[in-house]
């Protein structure tokens, strides 16, 4: 959906570190299939991508990724309960209308979920707001008037959301420039990667 196509994204390595070899993976909003292709090669995983855009579906086929064309907003009715080891939603959560529903659906069809999203609390974003403008950056490449990102949040927001709904966060990695950030993640982290559920 909002994936940056082609180049391997910094969150991919972070996602891959949590994924067992030969696992069965569902990648929601899989874009051109780069992540699944990477996981297939690096981790020997099997699985599917879900994607709405015609161009991305075509790119997935070219990338040798099994893609199911569909709209995540309609839920994951194609998939039965507990049919995947991991359900991944990378850089798409912020573009979903119904955030809670997709999180619940991820935990219904998968034993664990992995989400990545741009941390709106990152200091550079805060600075742009202080200067009076909506942030535009590598991770938030859209202008306010053409962005698909309707539910942007911070690391602190996401963790509160999970706590309030009893969603168990297993692990967290916060990245800036592809490198892990350990202190002040809500301020210094550009990209958040969460492993939640089982």
């Amino acid at each position: 959906m909002t994936g940056i196509n082609g180049e391997q994204r910094p969150d991919f390595a972070a996602i891959a570190q949590w994924i067992r070899r030969d696992a069965h993976v569902l990648d929601l909003g899989c874009g051109d299939g780069t992540l699944l292709k990477y996981l297939q090669q690096a981790r020997g995983v099997t699985g599917y991508g879900v994607e709405i855009d015609d161009g991305n579906v075509l790119a997935c086929v070219k990338n040798g990724v099994h893609v199911i064309q569909g709209d995540l907003e309609r839920g994951l009715s194609e998939f039965v309960d507990n049919s995947f080891d991991y359900v991944v939603l990378s850089q798409t959560l912020q573009a979903m209308r119904n955030t809670e529903r997709i999180m619940r659906e991820m935990l219904r069809v998968g034993r664990a979920g992995i989400v990545t999203f741009p941390n709106f609390g990152y200091w550079k974003n805060r600075l742009q707001i202080l200067r009076g403008h909506m942030p535009v950056s590598e991770n938030l490449p859209f202008e306010w008037f053409n962005t698909p990102n309707i539910h942007l949040c911070t690391v602190a927001d996401f963790e509160r959301f999970c706590t309030e709904r009893g969603i168990n966060i297993v692990e967290r990695t916060v990245l800036t420039g592809g490198k892990s950030v350990t202190s002040w993640p809500n301020l210094l982290g550009e990209l958040a990667v969460y492993h939640f559920g089982g």
């Binding site: 599917y48 099994h66 199911i68 998939f79 049919s83």
Partner: peptide
């Protein structure tokens, strides 16, 4: 999908 078959699906508008 239930059978974990190698399936690809496209819906052409």
């Amino acid at each position: 999908l239930d059978n974990r078959a190698r399936v690809t699906y496209a819906e052409i508008d």
